[in-house]
Amino acid sequence: MTETDFLNWVRGTGMQIALTVFLVGMIYRLLENYLIGRKKSLAEPKGDEWRHGLNTVWRRSLLHSNLTTRGYFTLVAGYIFHLAFLITLFFFAQHIEMFKSLLGFGWPALPPLVITVTAVLGIVALIAVLFHRITDPVKRMLSDFQDYLTWFLTFFPLITGFLLITQSSLPYKGLLAVHILSFELLLIAIPFTKLSHMVTLVIARWYNGAIAGYKGVQS
């Protein structure tokens, strides 16, 4: 297989496989959790589950005064990484071309310089959270293989993408193929690892708020 063949494969069949695994896997993961069911409480409710649930989905996104240094670092670095990653993914001109080929429509791109900045911010934030995971005694104790695997799977597309836009001396086709493949690996891993929190976070927050809200507490 030549470099061009490989690039064509990851752009075509590889991407189709990754997207299918991602979508089917995510649906399976959600059903796997949801179908376990939940017993309806027979206690007389004091508050509305839906309202409190939705409120908690929103409120847990906010920084608040009870946060410790660990909390602030985790949330601020987390916000920087997530925003930088999403902006780079959805507003880089070449990415929009890919989405256009898949969805049939596109949207305006951000200037390359802005994308370079967001990619750097994403990379720096990811390195910072890894450093914190290794040095913070609580995070280090909690961390397992999956925590490091998912970090690598997230870092890989960012760093290969950054090299693509900044290092013209590297073999472009090969690096582009590796970059697309790294994104596909990330997509495939999402439903089967804790990366699925990108969707289940909303559900977990809602349950938390609903359980508390039933008792009249805003959590």
């Binding site: 993961r29 796997e32 959790n33 949801y34 179908l35 376990i36 069911g37 939940r38 804790k194 699925s196 929190h197 289940t200 976070l201 559900i203 977990a204 349950y207 938390n208 359980i211």
Partner: peptide, 9 residues
């Protein structure tokens, strides 16, 4: 379902 969602997340 809530417990499974919490562990997943």
């Amino acid at each position: 379902a809530p417990t499974a969602s919490f562990f997943t997340t």
